[in-house]
Design a protein around this nucleic acid. Structure first.
Lengths: 202, 202
DNA sequence: TGAGTTTTAGACCGTATGTTCTAAAATAGA
DNA sequence: TCTATTTTAGAACATACGGTCTAAAACTCA
């Protein structure tokens, strides 16, 4: 038919994610991207549309990489463990994030979603997915007795989602292990079947 | 001495905060600001320095308005009430935030702090202040028996700070009352002296 | 009133932005 | 091998950016 592409779309998206993730939407120019990726701006426009569409594709790519498999992976574990492993991974990730990129979804939630209905929907949808994952974990745990039944599963799922988002914000300016590990302790205690009798101080 | 200023610095800062808050640092141009404020760019540069310094002044102004008096106001109340009132106010504020501006400090934590040491310090300092406020509340409550002693005050303060930040992120894309009020219920239960026996479902 | 000083208005500077154009290069099918 | 089609490279376009300059305006103090 015609001249074939000289690049691998997946590799391009990986590099695009990297830059959008680190600098955000506004502070990343098409020329930045072109140089980092090794393409001309014309090729980017030809292959991905305009900047808005390119960011959208990068974000989708990021989301699928970050949540797609992860949620499934954790969901096979016992509920308490699943939640614990999820948070531990987030904390380790946050602490080893030397470039302070944070979470691209959270970044998008604050930078682009509030002024753009499309991104608003996309981000909200992912947050709903994460919340649903937490709720399923809590419900399973409450059924098998490994998670405290004092709180409604939906409330607990919200708390876990809020805590997750809080960690991602906090770690961006204060990536301190003590702080992050300390703040999840009470939340985990909340899940513990008889948490109030454990962790007693003095 | 010389020609006097034609504007009131406080009114200018209020308008500048409004725009920086709504659109962020990158997406707000000096011309945007000049027009919104009713000054020329020359006057802005003359009075406030460059864009970076102007944003810094706007952020400081915002912080003092938002945290300065508030923390003091709440600190006179009984500890549990102080924390409860604080969160209720945040939730009401988030739900009535029709422009979805969120919290300018959180926005700064994600947009400017990670790439700028000065803002990194400023934001971290405010977060430390808020955390300290929560810790003082928890410590007072644990002393007078109104707050559960199962968790360390510093851990609880972290949890409260994380929850606060989480709410501010979540509300930006999903400003739903049920979600926000639900998510703080388990956190409040954690404070309750014998929370596990209350809030029992079925 | 006049000298000195600061603020104002708006043109201006160089650069960067998102995006498109032109033309060459590279393929597939006839 | 020729034609059709697509992707490339990079110049080009219009606009917007952060920031400065010039000159007039507006004041204080002598």
């Amino acid at each position: 038919m015609a001249r074939p592409r000289e690049f691998d779309e997946e590799k391009i998206l990986l590099l695009a994610v990297e830059r959008f993730w680190e600098h955000g939407y506004e502070a990343t120019s098409i020329r930045d991207l072109a140089q980092a990726i090794g393409l001309t701006t014309a090729s980017i426009y030809n292959a991905f549309g305009d900047k808005h569409a390119f960011y959208r594709k990068a974000l989708d790519f990021y989301v699928e990489r970050s949540f797609g498999d992860r949620v499934g992976r954790f969901e096979t574990k016992p509920p308490r463990e699943a939640i614990g492993a999820f948070f531990n991974e987030i904390i380790e990730r946050s602490l080893s994030d030397t470039k302070r990129k944070g979470c691209m979804l959270v970044n998008s939630a604050l930078e682009v979603a509030p002024h753009d209905d499309e991104f608003q929907r996309v981000v909200a949808q992912v947050l709903v997915r994460v919340e649903a994952f937490f709720r399923r974990c809590v419900e399973r745990g409450q059924k098998d007795g490994s998670i405290n039944r004092c709180q409604k599963a939906s409330d607990m799922a919200g708390t876990l989602l809020g805590t997750l988002l809080g960690i991602r914000v906090l770690a961006r300016t204060r990536p301190e292990r003590d702080l992050l590990e300390g703040l999840i302790r009470p939340v985990f205690a909340l899940l513990e079947p008889q948490s109030q009798s454990y962790n007693l101080i003095s």
